[in-house]
Amino acid sequence: MSETIENQVAAAGGPRQPGGVGRNLIVRTAFDAFMRRREATILLVAIGLIIYFQSARSEFLSHDNLVNLSQSTAPFAIVAVGQVLLLVSGEIDLSAGATFTLAPFMVHYLIDFYGVFPIPAIVLSVLVGCLIGFGNGFVTVVLKVPSFVTTLGMLFLVGGIVLTTSHAFPAQIPEAAQGTIQRWFGLAEWSEIIWCLLIVAFFHVVLTRTRWGLHTIAVGGNLLGAREAGIKTTRIKIGNFMITGGLAAFAGILEAFRTQTIDPSLSGADFASVMFTAVAAAVIGGTALAGGSGTVIGALLGAFVLAELRNGFNLIGISANPFNIILGLAILGSMILNVYLANLRRAGRT
């Protein structure tokens, strides 16, 4: 478990020497170990797509396009990290896209109407995201409404708040936040992806190396058993809802600062698209909708693959509409593959 993906890729990197049976066995074992990792499939897909698009259009790996790719990966990956934690604990947050849209408006309101300093305004807005998450968690866990329904309601509620308070007009980035702060939080070329990688790394450790992560898996894998073991299942679930809300808010702020506008239309049809892209990233990255297992790094790779597809097809000259067909097929295909691989893993060649 401690080996990194890179090591395993190197180890599985194909038979360098035809060699004896022993070497073949080692390579095969390493390959098996690699394939058993949930991130394996999606990593291979990501690399395959890089090779394909780079050979089709040489500007695919140009500096500018890499920045593009990173920027259309990062916000979705950040939202997806939260979804992974929630999916692993057996829940889902459909309202993440609405929170994503609300948060930059909160920053705008706090700075421009209440005179709050930019950094506290950002922190407060992220906390509002956590509060929305708490609402989701409370209704789901304490009032026992399925999270699918709770967060669907919250999606319209928060989306409605955005549209009402903004009168459906976009807003400017507050002047106080322009300059250094805006660059740090999204505008600078690599800013979004750096935040994204930090968040992914942090929550990868949380999920795989801490009690919180272990209990999240336990709660999603066997809720009754987790309670019998004395795990505070309510706290774990509500906590993960709050993390998801906070991350969605933060991603929304980064994205607004990068695009230099605070856009309420994201709360229209598109708020669903932020959330669905994030859930799709989590799922094609190897997180089970049924709970109990998932990977944060897989979600990052999932978001990257979706960005590659969108960006690459764009470069090749395929328009956005057939892109949806391909996205749909990609999700279906990866789900089928996931189920298949999960069965393989369970059959276990350990």
């Binding site: 009690r211 272990l214 209990h215 898996i217 336990a218 999603g220 894998g221 066997n222 009754l224 058993g225 987790a226 019998e228 073991a229 004395g230 795990i231 109990g292 297992s293």
Partner: peptide, 23 residues
């Protein structure tokens, strides 16, 4: 307690189950 339903989590390893909630 050893519960009748065992209170084990299938998705976790043997040792994580043995130390569940007293890691």
């Amino acid at each position: 307690t050893v519960y009748q339903d065992l209170a084990l989590v299938n998705e976790l390893t043997v040792y994580h189950n043995m130390f569940l909630n007293r890691e």
